[in-house]
Design a protein around this nucleic acid. Sequence first.
DNA 1: TTGTAAGCGTTATCAT
DNA 2: ATGATAACGCTTACAA
Lengths: 382, 382
Amino acid sequence: MSKRTNDSDAPESADRPTILDVAAACGVSPATVSNVLANKPYVREQTRQLVLQKVAELGYRASRAAQSLRTGRSWSVGLIIGDISNPYVAEIVQGVEEVLWAKRNNLILCNTGFDADRKMAYTSSLLDQHVDGLILVSQSFSEEEARALNLVDVPVVTVNRACEALKSDQVGIDGAGGIRAAVQYLAQLGHRRIAFVKGAASSPSADGRYVAYTQAVRAHKVVSDSALVVQGDYSMESGSIAVRELWARGAAPTAIVAANDLMAIGALGALKEMGVDVPRDVSVIGFDDIFLSNHPLVRLTTVHYSKRDIGANAARLLMRRIEGDRGDGPRAVTLDTSLVVRGTTAPPRAVRPANGAPMAKTRVKSMRAASKARPSRRASQS
Amino acid sequence: MSKRTNDSDAPESADRPTILDVAAACGVSPATVSNVLANKPYVREQTRQLVLQKVAELGYRASRAAQSLRTGRSWSVGLIIGDISNPYVAEIVQGVEEVLWAKRNNLILCNTGFDADRKMAYTSSLLDQHVDGLILVSQSFSEEEARALNLVDVPVVTVNRACEALKSDQVGIDGAGGIRAAVQYLAQLGHRRIAFVKGAASSPSADGRYVAYTQAVRAHKVVSDSALVVQGDYSMESGSIAVRELWARGAAPTAIVAANDLMAIGALGALKEMGVDVPRDVSVIGFDDIFLSNHPLVRLTTVHYSKRDIGANAARLLMRRIEGDRGDGPRAVTLDTSLVVRGTTAPPRAVRPANGAPMAKTRVKSMRAASKARPSRRASQS
DNA sequence: TTGTAAGCGTTATCAT
DNA sequence: ATGATAACGCTTACAA
């Protein structure tokens, strides 16, 4: 019998039945109930049925706290992100959520606002509760931080950033390939003065994209001029400022590549306010293909990749590690990008009469966008 | 002494120190360590210092699982939302996250995709882990669901929806007041044919906004015609469709009020494609003031309210209950709205010459937008 | 002011 | 195939 007061006269008692209640109801030991619930192969079919029935009857649900305490697993993973209201982050979260849900894991969301203290506090709180793993989006731990947290044993995967301190798995996108495809496409359209709006100064991904821009500019023999490069910080606002800066410098470009969509869209806004027509006077290409970019009012040509896949891949990588995969060193998955041509790109004014279709709506794989001759190559291999 | 193998010769052992290790290191009992950590008033200052020091030295952190098991509290709350990639949801989450963080509570995020089965599965999983409370965004439990989950005792607060089954606290916005202010503003501008795009058919908030529209139309003696009302579902797509439907019906309106921004923006897209100029040919007002709406390319006049405040209020209400407030019945907080006049509204063509400033950028409290005579009144009181 | 000991609800290791 | 029993790491009476 249960030690509780709820006997059969009061079956709807307020507090939850424990495994002992189930065991008592079945006339078996708690261990057997546990074995049934864990699908152990050696329980007699008859007992299994009985237990299952009583479990349903009593509405028994195992206490996660007790399970965690006993097994050391919490069936939850921590997701540490910088800014949940950034539209592309939401999609990543969705991808993560989906695969975790499939494995009945919980997602514990931590929003740091890119504050290092909060990141540390959150992480150690997650460690307190024995999360089975950690996913960091656009964040990383320094050697020092990793040491302070004593981040041993708990699997970590980073998104859009490497973490040298741990040798953790990571998933990212081929940012450089995307930028190359964008520059190449503009070059083929006839543009010679292609400006670049850089991402946040502290961001590794921003560096990579900038390097890719400079390489592509050289490769396509297009004008390379430091006056065409302006620093942004990934925010929409900084895109507007960048454009004004560009024009203030004199020699305006005929095309602009921004390191992300938010800045490209900010640029679009500034251009509109300045009375510069897109794409007639200037072409604009972004990076990310956020929700907003496909809107009829925006129709931004941009580098596309699946945010949801990023999240899903991160979660899958993590689950593999959690499930015991100690395989060869850190794994890294890099997702492909593709250029989506929408309404903000066209040949520059000079060559325009000779060339049609400024509003093409095709989506093209990065390389194909520029080089019809070799349809099977990808930007990431160029 | 600790029963573990890590004595002072191997202080950096891999597995985490327990309270016993700390107690041993201090030469006190585990209870004392616990008391120190719980800030019990009666511990000797000297002991407190010693314990604190050793705790820091060993890097001891209490196991949440053990604490939960013992105390029944988990220091985490579940947040059940329909669609995390909806831009306005992200801001609500941010508000929730902020107040939970302040109280060092965890946020467990559950994305149901508005699927009832997933909602139920997630909820019972949250219950398994003894979450201290639940926040439901734009969702609710039926009597039956509530019974199936045995949702007793765990505090719940709903956002943008009531839950009659529980008599839970709720936070919402004065949607009706916002819609009234929108209609009133348009009427004062001189519009007579004001269309309305309804929200999702199953949504209580959509009903409320529609009712407010009909009342306002009557109050302002503007044309009331069922041909001016079209069903949407809160999606951008449905806003586009609604506009085409409206025009297909013949007598086009001179103004459109949409039950949310996404639909209003969809409408803007369709109007652009149809060559109908906004605001010259038709005015458009949305509801929500999402991030997108303030963009230079969009500049949507809309009903504003603080999404972050909604989240913060929900979290605060919940924390009060968790902390033991059993006060008088369900509490409800209703946040104010205000009309933000941007670029998508102007007087209708007929009266336009007589009236200026179609691009006013002022933000106005709802009522003031329409009635300069009584600047202190609010839409919610009209 | 501090220590002892019971117990929270599981699961794992033995026996049987 | 099933049952005792001992942890897991903490908090909290209660005793000292």
